Simulated scan of single mutants.
Amino acid sequence: MADVPEADRVEGAPHPRDTRRLFGQEQAEARFLDAHAQGRLHHGWLITGPRGIGKATLAWRIARFLLAEEPGSGLFGPPETLDVDPAHPVARRIAAGAEPGLLPIRRAVDEKTGKLKTVITVDEVRRLRDFFGMSSAEGGRRIVIVDAADEMNPNAANALLKLLEEPPAGAMLLLVAHQPSRLLPTIRSRCRELRLSPLGPEAMAAALEQAVGEPRDGAALAELSGGSVGEALRILSGGGVELYVEILTLIGEIPRISRPALRKLCDSLSARAAEDRFDLLVRLFDLALARLARTGATGTPPPEAAPGEAQILQRLAPDARAARLWAGQASDLGARARAARAVNLDPGALVLDMFLRLEGAARHAVA
C-alpha cells in the first residue's frame, strides 16, 4: 500500500487510518457518541471544517469503533470514547486495508499518467453497488468513507445521492468535506453534520508530536497554519517557521528593507526545491500581510507566530488606514507573483519584486 498514491494522505504524516488519537475535536466525538447512545445513528454523516484539522481521522475512528462494536456491549453503559484497542481484529484489518465492512472512496490513480485524478469519478462511486451487494448476505454494518466528498464530479455526486436517498440496510456513509457548500443541497440535507474546529496551541502540539514523534512549537504552528495539522506539517517539512521569521524580519525593516538580507532570501530559491519553497514563501508572505491588516483593523495583534512579531505588527499597522494598505497589498502582490510564476519566471526575481513593491507602497504610509 505504501507504493500506491493516496489522495487522503498528508505527506510526512501517518494516514488517517493509522492515526490513533484525535486531538482538539472532543466536542464532535461527544456528539456522535451521544447519538450512538440514544440509538439515533443516522445513515449519512457530513464531517466538515477546514482542511487538515482531523476530519478524515474522525471518520476512520468512527468506522473502526462501529465495526469493532460487540453485540450487547451497551449493557454496562454507553461507551465514552471512540478508542479501539490496536490489537482488536477489526483494527488490525483496517490497518492492513483488509476490512471487508469498510470501503474508502477517494480520487483514484489515472492509469495513463500514473498520477491522482483531480476529481472523484462516478466509477469510484459505482463500486458501492458491488460492495453492498456482496456483503448484504453477511449482515452487520457496512461503512463507506468518502474523502473528500466535495471532490466528486457531478455524475459521482448524483450516484451517491441515490444511495443516501435509499440506503441499504446496515449502511453508513461518512462524507468528509472541506467545502460543504460545493456539495449538492440534497446531499447536505440527507446527512447529519459534525463540524470540526481549528486546533489551538495545546492540541496542535499534541497532534504534531503524535505525527512526527517529537515536540514542536504548537503556539507558532497553530497561528501559521490556521489551526490545521495538515498545513502545519507542510510548513514544518519546508522549514516554514524559519522562513516566516525571515519574511517578518524583512517586512519589519520597512521603510528600508535590508538589501543583503533580501538577496540572501532570493538566492535560496535557486535550488532544485525552489518551486515548493516559492509556493510556501508566497503563502507565508500573504499571511504576514493579512496579520498586519488584522492588527490595524482590530487594534490588537494576534498571538505571536514569531518572536517580536507583536511589536512589528503594531508599529506597521497602528490604525484602520494602515489595515487597508496591507489588505490591498496582500490581495495584489501574492496573486501577481503566482501568475508570473505560472509562466516560469525566475522565483528569486519574483520575490525580489514582491518585497520592493511592498516597500515602495508602504514607505510613505509608515513614515
Rank of each mutant, 00 (worst) to 15 (best):
R93P: 04
V343F: 12
A63C: 05
D346Q: 09
A205G: 14
L196R: 09
A361P: 00
R283M: 05
F32L: 13
R142W: 11
G239K: 10
V144R: 08
A148M: 04
M134C: 00
S189F: 12
K162N: 12
Q38R: 15
T19V: 13
R259C: 08
H178S: 09
N158V: 09
L82V: 04
E304N: 13
A323Q: 06
E70S: 13
L236N: 09
H15C: 04
R256M: 03
P50A: 12
L316N: 09
E242P: 03
A159V: 01
L173P: 07
F32H: 00
S237K: 03
S331M: 14
A361Y: 02
R363E: 14
A322W: 02
E29C: 07
T81A: 13
L262A: 00
S331Q: 15
I187N: 09
K264W: 02
L174W: 11
P318Q: 09
P167S: 10
T249C: 03
C191R: 08
A177T: 08
D346H: 07
T57W: 06
R188K: 14
R277A: 11
D286R: 14
I235F: 08
P302I: 01
E231I: 09
G328K: 05
A98N: 08
I62D: 07
E304A: 15
G39S: 08
L194S: 02
P301F: 13
A108G: 12
L265F: 07
A177M: 01
